[in-house]
Simulated assay, not measured.
Amino acid sequence: MTETDTGTPTGEHRACLALWAIPGLGPRTLDAVRAFAGGQLSRLASAPVRDWVSDVPVPAPVRQRLATVASLDDLASRVESACDAAGIRVAFAGTPAHPGRLVGLEDAPPLLFYRGEPGPPRRRLAMVGSRHPDQGFLPFARTFARQVAEAGVGVVSGAAEGVDRACHWGALDAAGETWAFLGSALDQLDPAQARLLPHFLARGGVFFSELPPGVRASTTTFPRRNRLIAGASDAVLVMRAGLESGSLYTADAARTQGRPVFALPGDVWQPAAAGCNALLADGRARACTSAEAICAVVGVHSGRAVPPGREGGWWEALSVEARGAYGLLDRVPRSFDEVLAQSPLSPAALTSALVELELSGLVVQHPGKRYEKV
């Protein structure tokens, strides 16, 4: 039986693991199956799949794949054996090793496969970029990431060639924590990722994937994993990106999730920076020019000034939406719905504004989405 971050998996967890291993069965379909099972997947675990597969609300291709399975218990055992053979563990949503910021996001996976030792909660920054940036940029990216990690911020990226990998190395140089979300299963690493893994395991890094053992990377899995890079982080920094860079998918995912997006500006004649410059020109990202500045954004810069005095430039640096949201809060926690009722913002815009305030250290979020001024 494969190891999870909470010990022996429950029957509910094993049923979830089995269903998650069925190709084409994503978070929304899993929710539909859970509702079909009366809110508990474990009710389906030991019953032969043939007894319920014709009635379960899943797409036809998923139904056909399910029909080849004897029982969810049997399939869970096969997945667990594959994980054990590859040294992979499973983190279910809400358990200690699962990235807490993913919980509650639309289309978030119910579990992640991982290798490494996730550390305690901390501020985390997604640092992403092109596989082929302009000449001389990779040493800069590595140094930038080292400075971020030295401040105690976790570095999140995708372990891809180029900027992603340079940022991971920068965090490892500082003995900081770094997470890599992969577009393949953890037993299907490419040669460069396989060489990187021992350094991660020895120096505080973690490899994550939502894909069960045996799944190779493809043109569809890479865009999907980008939402996890953004979702597991407090903010996203696009270091270098051309107009066709996959890093722009991560920026789009961050905006959808209400995560602040930043970009390093580049020379206008440099194609490798055209994507970053477009993000800035269109207002989809805010400019970042130093590690110190981005660390302050995620709340680890002890020298920043904060309201109520609103001294210095930090108040001016907030978006108009964040300033308005701050004015609706008090020293007594207020629910999201209470704030929304007094705000002219849409729910999505208010969520983004509150995240910005939280990351700037001006607001603290309590359980149940209750917000309080610091």
Rank of each mutant, 00 (worst) to 15 (best):
V103Y: 01
L111H: 06
E372C: 15
F181K: 13
F140Y: 14
A296I: 05
E316A: 12
F208G: 00
W20F: 12
Q270M: 13
H13V: 05
A325M: 07
E321H: 13
S360C: 15
R304I: 11
L186G: 03
A21Q: 05
A251V: 09
R101G: 01
L66R: 00
L201I: 14
A149G: 14
T143M: 08
P61W: 00
R165D: 02
G205I: 09
L105F: 07
T289M: 14
D337Q: 11
A82V: 05
F207W: 09
A254F: 02
W52M: 07
S77W: 06
A82L: 10
V103L: 09
E12V: 07
K373P: 04
L112H: 07
L111M: 13
L237V: 12
V103W: 04
A70S: 10
G176E: 04
E356F: 07
R63G: 08
L237T: 02
L228K: 13
L25V: 06
G170V: 02
N277M: 02
P27V: 13
A174K: 11
Q64Y: 06
D55G: 13
G158N: 04
F137E: 08
H132P: 00
F113Q: 15
L357N: 10
A235H: 03
G231Y: 09
P99M: 09
D267T: 13
P133W: 01
S184T: 02
A317K: 00
E372G: 04
A18D: 07
P118N: 13
A76Q: 11
P27H: 12
G136P: 07
G154D: 06
W269G: 09
T351F: 10
P344K: 14
A67H: 01
P271S: 08
L196W: 01
A70I: 00
G39S: 10
C16P: 00
V90P: 03
L359Q: 15
P96I: 04
A151H: 13
R203C: 03
P139E: 10
E316R: 11
V153L: 10
H168I: 11
V69N: 01
S54G: 10
A281D: 14
D73W: 05
R28K: 13
E80A: 11
L41D: 07
Q188C: 12
L189T: 06
G258D: 05
D252Q: 15
G104V: 10
S346N: 11
P260A: 06
L125N: 08
G299Q: 09
S157H: 09
S130V: 01
E311W: 09
V374E: 03
F36L: 07
V206G: 10
G116W: 08
D55I: 03
P198F: 14
S247G: 14
H366D: 09
V69C: 01
A91K: 12
G324E: 02
W314H: 07
V49S: 12
A175I: 01
A278N: 15
R124D: 05
S77N: 13
G158C: 04
Q135L: 13
V298I: 11
L279T: 01
S46N: 14
R304H: 06
K369A: 09
A37K: 10
A180E: 03
P198T: 09
E292V: 15
V297P: 00
G275W: 03
